[in-house]
Simulated assay, not measured.
Amino acid sequence: MSAGVHELARMTYPEVEALLAEPQPRARPVVALLATGSTEAHGPHLPLATDSIISEEMARRAAEQLAARGYEALRMPALHYAVTDWAADFAGSAGVSKDAARATLLSLARRLGVMGVDALVLVNAHLEPDNIASLRAVIREHAESGAPGRLLFPDKTRRRNAARLSEEFQSGSCHAGQYETSLVLAVDPGLVRQDIARGLPEHHVPLHEHIARGAQSFLDCGLDQAYCGTPAQASAEEGERSYDALAAMVADAVDEAFARGEPRPK
């Protein structure tokens, strides 16, 4: 790994102590990156861990960018379970309740703040409405609690962030489509059942419109194979471009938080 990038799961506790030994405010703030994914159906061509694969790669690339910008980037072990009610009709999809997800994230954020980490960033690729709502709620609750350290969530569904991503992503018809399939191809083409992906027809389903009318599942939206968009047009090259934008989105959010200076670490 590059200088300034650390992987918590591979460190010993004395190594973590040494990383956090300098008192705050530090010349190089310590920023932890927690990849939050899911275990749920992503069409007949992508693995159940697609969201985790994407969020872990986002965190890896964002860590490199943060190290280059003057931070010590600490990559956390990923969380592979989240609220996945929308995919419950498809085999293998396994999630947790909103309360369980929120409590886990709040506990981790508090523990890292007490430990002396300057900021924890939730690096998320799972776009289920209740999951996004849970992550936003965690940010509010952490800030209101007065717990030490910053907790950040670069939310790609916010308009200014979505504008940095692909046309399919912005259309809202992107679950296991061209956007996500490209991201997985950029990590490992062997994870994509490409013969199946190439045979899938375009299936345009603007999920945000169905969400607005009260849909509660992929089947409610007509995703009978747990995908929408155009997976047949995916490419590793598009995935690389999307990762560049996603990693910069995370690093920019960290820069903005430290520039504002609130809430301060305690």
Rank of each mutant, 00 (worst) to 15 (best):
G4I: 03
M11K: 10
E17T: 15
A18F: 09
L20K: 12
E22T: 12
A27Y: 04
A27Q: 13
L33D: 02
E40H: 09
A41V: 05
G43C: 06
L48F: 01
I53R: 02
E57A: 11
M58F: 11
R61T: 07
E64L: 11
L66T: 02
G70P: 10
A73P: 03
H80N: 11
H80T: 14
V83W: 02
T84M: 11
A87T: 14
A91K: 13
V96C: 13
K98P: 10
D99C: 02
A100T: 15
S107L: 11
L108Q: 12
L108E: 08
A109H: 03
R110K: 15
D118V: 06
V121M: 03
A125Y: 00
P129R: 09
D130Y: 10
A133N: 13
L135T: 03
R136N: 05
I139F: 08
I139P: 01
P148N: 01
L151F: 10
L152F: 08
F153W: 02
D155V: 06
R159M: 04
R160C: 00
A163M: 14
Q170A: 13
Q178H: 06
Y179K: 01
L183T: 01
D188F: 12
I196Q: 01
E202K: 07
H204E: 13
H204I: 08
L207D: 00
A212M: 03
R213T: 12
A215T: 05
A215R: 00
C221A: 15
Y227W: 11
P231D: 07
Q233A: 15
S235G: 11
R241D: 12
A247N: 06
V250R: 10
A251G: 03
D255E: 15
A257W: 03
A257G: 11
P265V: 06
P265W: 10
